[in-house]
Simulated scan of single mutants.
Amino acid sequence: MSIATNGNGRCAVVTGASSGIGEASARALAADGWHVVVAARRRERLEALAADIGGTAVELDVTDDVSVAALAQQLDRVDLLVNNAGGAKGLEPLAETDIADWQWMFDTNVLGTVRVTQVLLPLLEAAPDNSGLIINMGSVAGWDVYAGGSAYNAAKHGVRVISRALRIENHNVRVTELDPGRVATEEFSLNRFRGDAQRAAAVYDGELNLSAEDIAEAVRWVAAQPAHVNIDVMTLKPRTQA
C-alpha cells in the first residue's frame, strides 16, 4: 500500500500525533503544505485529525516491532520524521521508582525513537537533494536533572545521544533535537500522575507555560529551512523558566 501525498510530494510522519505536541505539529505542518501521516495508538483520534488536515492516519505502537514495520510498509516517500511519541510516569525519588516505569519510559522515548528511525531512514536518505530531516522531541529534562525525574531524565538524555549519533554518522539526513521546557499539555501530566487530574493540573497552575502550538511552530520552522541548513539543537522555555 502506498500513501498518496499532496501536489508537491512532501511527506511528513509525526508519531504520537493523537494529542498535545504531536497533534499541534501535524496541524502546523499541514498548514505549511506538507502531507502529514499521523501515527499513534488511538485510531479514532487519528482519523478525525487526518480528516481535518487532509492527512493520513496510521495506527502505530512505537514499542512494537511489528507495528513499526507495518508503518514503513505503507510508505514510499518520507521527507520528514517527527519522533514525538514519548512520555513520563511517576515522580518518585530514584530509590522508590518502579522498574516497570523505567522500562516503559525507555521503550517509548528511547527505543521507540530508534525503531521508527531505523525503518524510515532509507526513505529519508532518498529524499530529493538530501533534504531528509528528522526532528527528535527531546526535553530540557535531557539536560538538567530534577528531583523525582531520574527515569525520565535518563530517557531524554538517551534521545540526546540518538540525535548526536545520527548527526555524526549520517550527513545525508539532517537531525534536529527540539527541547521544550514547561509545556501545558494535560495528557502528559495525567499519564505521569496515573490519571490524578488535580495533581496533573498543579504542575501548571500559577505558572507561565508554553503551549503545544508554541512547540509546533518550532517544528514547522525547522522543517521549512533549506536542505543545506541543519538546526542542531533548539531549546524553548517560557520566559519565567530559567
Rank of each mutant, 00 (worst) to 15 (best):
S18K: 05
E177A: 13
A72W: 00
E217K: 10
H228R: 11
A57N: 07
K237F: 05
V114I: 13
N209M: 15
W104M: 11
Y204C: 05
P93L: 10
G9N: 06
V13Y: 12
L46R: 04
S2D: 09
T108I: 13
T63A: 09
T15L: 06
L210R: 14
N83I: 02
V161P: 01
A30M: 03
E23M: 07
W104F: 12
V110H: 14
V116M: 06
A165C: 15
N83K: 04
N130M: 11
V222R: 04
A26T: 07
D65T: 01
A31P: 01
A17M: 14
S163Q: 02
N109T: 07
G181H: 15
S211R: 15
V82Q: 01
G138D: 13
A69F: 06
D214Q: 12
P128D: 14
T176H: 00
M105K: 10
A69C: 08
Q225D: 02
V68R: 01
A50V: 11
Q73I: 00
S131P: 09
A202S: 14
V161T: 05
A165H: 07
Q73V: 00
L123S: 11
L80T: 05
A212K: 08
L49K: 15
H35M: 00
P122C: 07
H157A: 04
R194S: 14
V38R: 04
V14H: 10
I53F: 07
T117V: 04
T176R: 10
G33H: 05
A72P: 03
A201T: 11
T117K: 13
A202L: 04
G206M: 08
G90F: 10
G54Y: 14
Q118G: 03
D32P: 01
R220N: 03
E186I: 10
R167Y: 01
A212W: 06
P93N: 08
N84G: 08
A141F: 15
L81I: 01
Q225L: 14
D214L: 08
A227C: 08
V203L: 12
R182Y: 09
N136A: 09
V175F: 00
Q74N: 03
R220F: 05
A218S: 10
L236Q: 04
